[in-house]
Each structure stands twice: as C-alpha cells, then as structure tokens.
C-alpha cells in the first residue's frame, strides 16, 4: 500500500520551516523587543523599560502622533464602511444579477486596482485631484482610500455570497418579504461574516496605507504611517519601535477577530 503523503518525512523539513519563520518574523521580533529597551540606542540593550511607550503617549512628539493616529482611525473607519457598502452592492449585482453584457469586464474592473502598482495609482490620483482642483487634505485621503478599499472588501463578500444558495432569498420572498426585507432579514445576516471580513480587510489596508496617502495628503496632514515615516527620516528613535509594536498588535487583533468571525460563519452554513 502506498503511504499517505506526509511532508514531515522529508529531510530538513524542520530546519527549512524554522528558517522561513525566522526570516519572516525576526525583524518584527527585534522591533518588539527593542521597544522595551531602556536606552537611546536602537542596537544596544540597556535593560527593560516602558519609557518609550510613555514617550509615545506623553513625549515631545506625542501630539503629532495622536493627531495622526486619530486621522488614520477616522479615515480607515469611514473608508472601510463606505467601501463595504459599495462592495456589498457590487457583489449582489455580480453574483445574483444573472448574466449581463460586460459581466467579466465588470469583475476585471473591480479587482484590477489590486494588481495595479500602487505608485501608479498614487500618481494618477494626485494628477486627477489637481486636474479637478480638489483640495488636498483629509477628504482627499478618504476618497482615495475608499476607492482602493473596494476591491479588497469585494473579495470576501462576493466569495461568501457565492456560497449562499439562492433558495434562502426565494423562501423569504415566498413568505411575503419584499426585496428590501429579504436583504435586511435574510441575505445580510447570512452574508454577515463575509461583510465583516470585507470591512476588517478594508480597515487594515486603509490604516496601513503609505504610498497613496503620502501623495494625496497635502501639506501638514498626516496619518500614522506618514507620521512614522516623517519621524524616521530624522533618525530612528526607540519610540518609533514602541509605536510600531502597538500598530502591529492592533493589526494582529483585527486579523484574529476576522478569522474567528469567518469561522463562526462557516458553522452557520451547515443546514443539512
């Protein structure tokens, strides 16, 4: 009898696995460890301390970072919300709309922004904004973020909708629900996990964006990534490490949340 495929039996399996994990995570780990370093140097260990975290919240640059973090949060929240609404509508149109002319083209157009080099989008967006004399600032960042969040939100939402049988909606309509009530009481709750995943994905992408934001932000307006970049230009101080660690933990939290919501959604689906 043939043995079942077992990747562990290959020579060097553990070594290669550990090497890959090390290359992936060592830099992050170092940043996390040195964020607790009680020293001005970023390479020499000077004992444990929370002084750089204190520095982030109450130090010289804290006002700048707080404002930037606030901007980032508001923009990410609004961009993800609006992008999720648009992406949900697009998913329903694409998945439930039957066959229409230009369906594949529409799908291509929705997902293309993921493939286009970000720098190209950034330059194009900046040129577009100046062409229509759109004032650069928080609003221009928001508009740009909504646009690039849509494809990211669209993917999990449409994937979820594709897995939902049309008979739920038919049953709702059969039981006297009009189109809106069918969506509100039946389709949206069943799509829920997909919608939340889409929202969280859009939120993280927006929170983390640097290139496009840097082009369209205008003078004096900062988001967290651009503020960090600005601070690093003057030399890396350990408070940047503390800030990065906080940002990393927040992202990990969101991804974990998204994972558990997605898993709950899969349990919901078993109706056999």
């Amino acid at each position: 009898m043939e043995k079942a495929f077992n990747v562990k039996q290959y020579n060097g399996f553990y070594f290669i696995t550990c090497l890959c994990l090390f290359i992936l995570y060592a830099p992050l780990l170092i940043v996390m460890i040195y964020s607790f370093n009680d020293s001005l140097s970023i390479t020499r260990w000077g004992g444990m301390s929370l002084r750089w975290y204190y520095e982030v919240f109450y130090g010289l640059e804290s006002e700048k970072f707080k404002l930037a973090a606030w901007n980032s949060l508001i923009i990410a929240l609004m961009a993800a919300t609006i992008a999720t609404i648009v992406a949900t509508a697009a998913s329903i149109g694409m998945v439930r709309g039957g066959h229409f002319k230009g369906k594949s083209a529409s799908f291509g157009l929705i997902s293309l922004p993921i493939m286009v080099p970000e720098i190209v989008t950034a330059v194009a967006t900046l040129i577009f904004f100046s062409a229509i004399s759109f004032k650069l600032g928080v609003l221009s960042i928001l508009v740009a973020h909504i646009v690039f969040c849509i494809p990211f939100a669209y993917l999990p939402i449409s994937a979820r909708l594709q897995g939902i049988e049309a008979s739920y909606e038919e049953a709702a309509q059969d039981l006297y629900a009009n189109r809106w009530k069918t969506f509100w009481h039946v389709l949206m709750p069943i799509m829920g996990p997909g919608i939340i995943s889409g929202f969280l994905l859009g939120f993280i992408i927006s929170l983390d964006d640097f290139i496009i934001t840097n082009f369209v932000k205008g003078a004096g307006v900062e988001t967290l990534p651009t503020a960090i970049f600005g601070a690093v230009k003057q030399g890396i101080k350990p408070n940047i490490m503390a800030l990065s660690t906080l940002l990393l933990l927040f992202s990990v939290f969101l991804v974990t949340l998204s994972y558990f919501i997605g898993r709950k959604g899969n349990n919901l689906k078993t109706n056999k």
């Binding site: 049988e165 008979s167 739920y168 038919e170 049953a171 709702a172 309509q173 059969d174 039981l175 006297y176 629900a177 009009n178 039946v186 709750p189 069943i190 829920g192 919901l268 689906k269 078993t270 109706n271």
Partner: peptide
C-alpha cells in the same frame, strides 16, 4: 411576495440564523 401561495423547498431553505 404578493401571492398567497407558499412553498416547501426541496432543500427546505430554512433560515440558518
């Protein structure tokens, strides 16, 4: 939704939530 006719579906289509 305007027809006073209801259906029992082959896969039941019970609302899972």
């Amino acid at each position: 939704n305007k027809r006073p006719i209801n259906t029992v579906f082959q896969n039941y289509a019970l609302f899972p939530h």
